[in-house]
């Protein structure tokens, strides 16, 4: 079976696909990391992704300008993040419920807009895979092994991975990051030394939501180049789980996303190669692994102490 496929080609294929498939998870989970580090659990990621996917697709199909499309995803992400922040920070609504509400809003709104503004599923030309051509005849993507794995992805995939060190730097090395972490850990203490708890949380939630918007766009104008109702299909919720998985650290989140996507790719190859595993079992693999990893107790130590707890001065 598949005699011409060498083992190395299969392994390369799995790694390449794992990296590509990690893109939307990474954007969304890194965004959620900011939000949760500041103490706000945003379960609306899925809804924001849907809206980001829709608006970027719509702008791309109307104007053909992919950067404008990406900007549209960011803007809608910021707006929905602002809404989530007003509700959960200023009005101190229960975060789990308002997050689910935001998700349902995004699901319904993106479906409604899709039906009225586009009507039927069509394809567009999205961000293509870069080839990094040095000269006309030589491209980095042509390098055996390394080229195939690292040099033939869409620009958004590079953006997602570049965001990992940027997130680490933002959280660990900037004053802003220190504020975000402190309001998530001990808002009273932060407040007592003059940090505006709500302002730091607003910023983190809005940044996280903007990234969720980009995560949606990475599907509709880069990986799939199509918009369909409810197309995110749970990626946003898995991204929330990946934040727990990664112990609230950007690098941990990246490994979580890579592990999840690589196992997804692995199970697809397992089926194509005709390994004697039932498809029902192989499609479960990534989820089982996530649950197992979530159950490992030491990771919980890193949970922000004030996660899901609204802050009001003097009341608590």
């Amino acid at each position: 079976m598949n005699g011409e496929l060498t083992t190395i080609a299969i392994i390369l294929g799995i790694i390449h696909q794992g990296i590509r498939l990690a893109t939307p998870y990474l954007f969304a989970a890194l965004g959620e990391t900011f939000s949760q580090r500041s103490g706000v659990l945003n379960l609306g990621v899925e809804g924001i992704m849907l809206m980001g996917a829709f608006f970027s697709f719509y702008v791309a199909s109307e104007t053909g300008n992919l950067w404008l499309a990406l900007l549209a995803a960011i803007i809608i992400g910021v707006l929905m993040g602002l809404f989530m922040a007003v509700v959960s920070i200023t009005f101190q609504a229960e975060q789990g419920i308002s997050g689910i509400g935001l998700y349902l809003f995004g699901l319904g709104m993106s479906s409604l807009l899709f039906k009225t503004m586009i009507g039927s599923v069509t394809g567009i030309t999205g961000f293509s895979e870069l080839q990094f051509c040095v000269t006309d005849s030589f491209c980095l993507a042509d390098i055996p092994v390394l080229g195939e794995i690292f040099f033939s992805h869409s620009i958004l995939t590079y953006g997602a991975f570049l965001l990992v060190p940027i997130s680490v730097w933002l959280l660990k090395r900037t004053t802003w990051g220190l504020k975000v972490r402190s309001v998530g850990q001990n808002p009273e203490a932060a407040d007592s030394v003059g940090v505006s708890v709500n302002r730091a949380r607003y910023a983190a939630v809005i940044l996280g939501s903007a990234l969720a918007g980009i995560a949606g766009a990475s599907l509709s104008i880069s990986l799939l180049n199509v918009f369909q109702e409810n197309m995110i299909n749970g990626i946003g919720f898995i991204a929330v789980a990946l934040v727990y998985f990664g112990g609230w650290s950007p690098v941990g989140v990246m490994f979580g996303a890579l592990l999840f996507s690589t196992i997804s790719a692995l199970q697809l190859w397992g089926q194509v190669l005709g390994l004697n595993i039932s498809s029902n079992i192989s499609v479960m693999l990534p989820y089982i692994l996530t649950i197992v990893a979530l159950a490992i107790p030491f990771r919980r130590a890193a949970q922000p102490a004030a996660l899901t707890k609204p802050f009001s001065r003097g009341e608590n």
Binding site: V87, E94, I97
Partner: peptide, 24 residues
């Protein structure tokens, strides 16, 4: 109050999801 607000948003969201079908 917080729970009420949360639930209110949830209901709004649900309504919108339902609207998706009817309007179309």
């Amino acid at each position: 109050k917080k729970w009420l607000l949360g639930i209110l948003i949830l209901v709004l969201g649900l309504l919108l999801v339902a609207c998706g079908g009817d309007t179309a």
